[in-house]
């Protein structure tokens, strides 16, 4: 009689212990804190994927990737949301807006970086450079018909130009500033002519530009070289024109988040993004221009592009006024 309740009690205790112990065990698979890195990136997976993978294989560091839009991620960093070590991607204009969030760091390979891409104060690590180009649909426009920025103001293309809203797209704003800088004459006058020539057909997103030209709903458009090359390789009906008046060639970059919990790993990642191996990949696989002068590519050499000296700080300062005028002009044109 006394044996059975005792056995039952033991069974109950065992059950409670078992249920309390269950579910553990996997946590020891998780990497230790010093072998981790959190990267916020606005790049597409085809860009960050191979880099992160190779970085992991070479260093043994587990990379946790958080993807999103550039501004969204920057705002999250500014708000101090979650641990973040590196912001990877985003035009330097955007990064500059959030300069407070980042810690300057000069990579060991910085000497190989093209002089005009050298960051002021080493606030970021340039990753690739992205010239602004014009594209046209070769079925609608014959070669040589579109030469440069001046064509955007030519009334014969009125309503047939694909241009993204500069208030939404950072690259579109860069394109607008580049155009105004490259064209001689009164900037605001040219801006008014451009908006009028767009005839209300401003596209909501920069991704729509190539599409609009490729399907023929627009004859020409303004986009980044990388986007154009990639879509061209994917079969889009577009041809690329480097504007005769010259163009800008802004870099996108990676930056060390100040107060990064895994600072050492973050620095290793920054070094890696600027290493010759990665930069070769940038040129060979990503249709981007390497920021290093020692990496060859098949693209038209930068000397031939008549690159302008794009003043990022001035452009940032001008942004508000330009966008206000843009909105006013659009309103007036409707």
């Amino acid at each position: 009689m006394s044996g059975r309740p005792r056995a039952l009690l033991a069974a109950l205790l065992a059950a409670l212990l078992l249920s309390a112990c269950g579910g553990g065990g996997e946590t020891d698979l998780a990497p230790p804190e010093e072998a981790r890195l959190t990267v916020y990136t606005s790049h597409k997976e085809e860009v960050y994927g191979p880099i992160v993978k190779e970085f992991q294989a070479r260093t043994g560091i587990w990379v946790q990737v958080v993807t999103g839009g550039t501004n969204e991620l920057l705002e999250r960093i500014a708000a101090g949301e979650g641990p973040c070590d590196v912001m990877f991607g985003g035009g330097v204009e955007s990064l500059m807006t959030y300069a407070d969030c980042f810690e300057p760091y000069a990579c060991s390979g910085a000497g190989a970086v093209k002089p005009w891409l050298q960051p002021e104060g080493d606030l970021w690590t340039p990753f690739s450079s992205l010239p602004v180009v014009l594209i046209y649909n070769p079925r609608l426009v014959s070669p040589g018909e579109v030469q440069g920025w001046a064509d955007l103001l030519d009334t014969r293309w009125r309503g047939r130009i694909a241009f993204a809203d500069p208030a939404v797209s950072g690259s579109s704003y860069t394109a607008a500033v580049t155009m105004l800088t490259c064209l001689p004459g009164d900037d605001w006058e040219e801006l008014a002519q451009l908006v009028e020539n767009l005839d209300g057909g401003v596209l909501a997103d920069s991704g729509d530009v190539v599409e609009a030209v490729s399907v023929g709903s627009c004859a020409l458009g303004v986009t980044l070289e990388e986007t154009a090359l990639k879509r061209q390789a994917a079969g889009a009906h577009i041809a690329i024109v480097y504007p005769a008046e010259g163009t800008s060639n802004l870099p996108d970059a990676a930056a060390l988040v100040s107060g990064a919990p895994h600072r050492e790993n973050a620095l290793a990642f920054l070094e890696f993004t600027q290493s010759a191996d990665v930069q070769s990949l940038v040129a060979s696989d990503f249709a981007r221009r390497s920021v290093r002068s020692d990496i060859p590519d098949d693209l038209p050499p930068e000397d031939s592009l008549r690159l302008i000296d794009y003043d990022i700080a001035a452009a940032a300062a001008l942004k508000e006024e330009l966008l206000e005028r843009w909105a006013a002009l659009e309103e007036g044109g409707l």
């Binding site: 191979p50 190779e54 294989a57 070479r58 010759a276 191996d277 070769s280 990949l281």
Partner: peptide, 9 residues
């Protein structure tokens, strides 16, 4: 690529 991926490793 001998500089990338498994060959490099």
């Amino acid at each position: 690529s001998p500089r990338w991926g498994v060959l490099a490793a």
